[in-house]
C-alpha cells in the first residue's frame, strides 16, 4: 500500500498544472506572502499546511483570483496555469474560476434547492444545451461528490436543510459540476464532525483521478492522509515543499520539524 502510493506520487509530479514564481501578496501594508515558488502537479493532491495566519489560505485564493474581491489586496509575481499567466490583463477571472473551482471552509450552499445548487455553475457557464443534459450533469456531479444516493429523492429540497457533511459534499458537487481542472479546497473539513470528515477525505482521494486538488488544512494528519505533496508555510514564506512522506518523516527545515513535532503551531 505504502509503496503504491509512492509510485503514484512520482507519476503525479511529472507535469505541473500550476506554476507559481516569486509570488508576493500585500494586504494594505502587510506583506502576507513573500517570494513563494511552487509547482502544483496535475492529478495530485497538494496540501498546504502551516500555523494559522501563515498565508496558506491567502495563497490558495490567489490561484483563482478570489483575492480580487478584496480591495486592499495586491498580488505580484507570476502564477501560470498550463503555462498561461492568470494575472495577465487579458484573463477574465470569470473564465479562470470556471477552470479553477473552489470549496470553502464553511459549507455555503445557496438558499436554493439541491438541484439548483448544482445546476448553478453549468447554467451560468452554458454547459448544458437542454434540460436532460443539465439533469445528467447534476446527477454525474452529485455521484462524483458521493452524495447522490443520499439526495436523489429530494433534489427539490433546499440545500440548506442538509447536514454539515452533506452540505460540504453538495458544495463539492457544485464545484465539480462546472468541470474544473483544478479544485481548491480551503480547510474543507474544519467545520465538520469526524465522520463527515472521513467521508470528505475519501472523496478527495477519488477526485484525484480527474482533477488537480489543492487543499489547505491545519491538520497534519489530514495532510498526511490525503495528499501526495505538501507545502509548509510559515509567516508568509513557503518553507518547504516536497513529497508528503518526506515532509513528515524527514523534514529538511528546522521550522518544519518544529511544526510537525508540535513545538510551533
Amino acid at each position: 500500500m505504502n509503496d503504491m502510493a509512492r509510485v503514484e506520487r512520482r507519476v503525479g509530479t511529472k507535469n505541473a498544472k500550476i506554476t507559481a514564481r516569486d509570488v508576493q501578496v500585500h494586504y494594505g501594508d502587510t506583506h502576507a506572502i513573500k517570494d513563494v515558488n511552487v509547482e502544483i502537479g496535475d492529478k495530485t493532491v497538494t496540501a498546504f499546511i502551516g500555523p494559522s495566519g501563515c498565508g496558506k489560505s491567502t495563497f490558495l485564493r490567489c490561484l483563482n483570483r478570489m483575492n480580487d474581491t478584496i480591495d486592499a489586496c495586491r498580488v505580484r509575481g507570476d502564477i501560470l496555469l498550463d503555462g498561461e499567466d492568470i494575472y495577465d490583463k487579458r484573463v477574465d477571472p470569470v473564465q479562470l474560476r470556471a477552470k479553477v473551482g473552489m470549496v470553502f471552509q464553511k459549507p455555503n450552499p445557496f438558499p436554493k434547492s439541491i438541484y439548483d445548487n448544482v445546476a448553478y455553475g453549468p447554467r451560468i457557464h452554458g454547459l448544458a444545451r437542454n434540460k436532460p443534459e443539465l439533469d445528467e450533469i447534476v446527477e454525474k456531479s452529485l455521484r462524483r461528490a458521493a452524495i447522490w444516493n443520499e439526495v436523489k429523492d429530494r433534489l427539490d429540497a433546499p440545500g440548506t436543510g442538509l447536514s454539515g457533511g452533506q452540505q460540504q459534499r453538495l458544495c463539492i458537487a457544485r464545484a465539480v459540476a462546472t468541470e474544473p481542472e483544478v479544485l481548491l479546497m480551503d480547510e474543507p473539513c474544519s467545520a465538520l464532525d469526524p465522520i463527515a470528515t472521513a467521508q470528505v477525505e475519501e472523496l478527495i482521494d477519488e477526485l484525484r483521478q480527474r482533477y488537480s486538488v489543492v487543499i489547505v488544512t491545519h491538520s497534519m494528519q489530514q495532510a498526511a492522509r490525503v495528499s501526495q505533496k505538501t507545502a509548509f508555510f510559515h509567516l508568509g514564506n513557503l518553507v518547504e515543499f516536497g513529497e508528503t512522506g518526506q515532509i513528515f518523516t524527514n523534514p529538511q527545515d528546522p521550522r518544519t520539524e518544529s511544526y510537525i513535532t508540535g513545538r510551533i503551531g
Binding site: 496555469l81 498561461e84 495577465d88 484573463v91 477574465d92 473564465q95 481542472e181
Partner: peptide, 15 residues
C-alpha cells in the same frame, strides 16, 4: 474529464 480547450488569454463569446 473536461474538454475545455480554450486558452485563458482569449475570451470566448459567452464570456
Amino acid at each position: 474529464a473536461p474538454k475545455r480547450t480554450g486558452s485563458l488569454l482569449s475570451k470566448d463569446a459567452r464570456t
